[in-house]
Design a protein around this nucleic acid. Structure first.
Ligand SMILES: [Zn+2]
Ligand SMILES: [Zn+2]
Ligand SMILES: [Zn+2]
Ligand SMILES: [Zn+2]
Lengths: 145, 145
DNA sequence: TCAGCTATGATACAATATAACCTTCGTCAA
DNA sequence: TTGACGAAGGTTATATTGTATCATAGCTGA
């Protein structure tokens, strides 16, 4: 069956991302999916596109990498109603972990700033690099970009 | 003098970015600097690194491209005091223009969200894609990624 | 059945970014 | 003066990330 493979790829990608618990690049994912028969980058990118459209995966622009959504609130099973992605990421440059957060006030404020210019937002990326609480306490130096 | 070339490259890059009035990729810049003798990507990236360190250029992560700062407030001539880069970008997917904005309340709020987790921020990227006022009025379709 | 549509796969390629190495030039002390 | 030293810049090659293109397979509806 044609569409069965696609959903299987998506499932495998979700598993890899969830297990990694940190951002993985498309090529990291390709390497992990190779044993399941995936050979081409495009296969990974196509599956990621669908997962992002349904809100189960987020792209971290500043890392060119992808994380599984930890949130669950903005998931949609119907692809015709894309999620707003009103969400931000705190990226630790010490240990590489990414924490997803969502703050209604923050996004209301952001939308206010944009509305004042007449700008109509469609998707936003809020990515803060720094050090997580654990790395600050432990004095871990920056090992990630 | 050794450093004269470097500053000349930086000056040329600033001119190209300012004139373009929209984001340019490193390779766009390389093409424009070729007549001045620049032949390698690394030259462009090194000059961009310095310009970003002094706050005169910002990188748009979601486009892998660079814009001249339109702001001026966070410039530093002394490279030992890097700017905070508390700044966001409204990126029009219709006409490709990027508008830089900075809102103290917004960043205070963001810092509050992060402080609640014990996260210590270092640099932030706020990039909103959508349509600028002009494109909304004109009904311009999305031609940019 | 059969033309049209979509999903997938395979190959090649484009675009973005960095590594490794070397030359040059300024600096400064012997 | 001069030679060691280090920072800056150039050259080449390569790594990483992302697409274009075309062929095929399988569904769908007339
Ligand atoms: Zn999420
Ligand atoms: Zn950490
Ligand atoms: Zn600026
Ligand atoms: Zn516009």
């Amino acid at each position: 069956m044609a569409s069965r493979k696609g959903t299987q790829h998506a499932t495998n990608i979700m598993e890899a991302l969830t297990e990694a618990a940190r951002p993985l690049s498309a090529y990291d994912l390709l390497d992990r999916l190779r044993p399941t028969g995936v050979a081409a980058p495009l296969t990974v990118y196509r599956a990621l596109d669908k997962l992002m459209a349904s809100g189960r995966v987020h792209r971290i622009e500043s890392l060119n990498a992808f994380v599984a959504c930890r949130h669950g609130e903005h998931h949609h099973d119907h692809a015709d109603t894309p999620p707003p992605r009103a969400v931000g990421f705190a990226i630790c440059d010490g240990c590489g972990t990414v924490e997803e957060f969502s703050d209604a006030d923050l996004f209301a404020h952001l939308n206010g700033c944009l509305a004042a210019k007449g700008f109509v937002p469609r998707s936003s990326a809020i990515e803060v690099h720094g050090r997580c609480a654990g790395c600050v306490r432990g004095g871990v130096a920056e090992t990630q970009p």
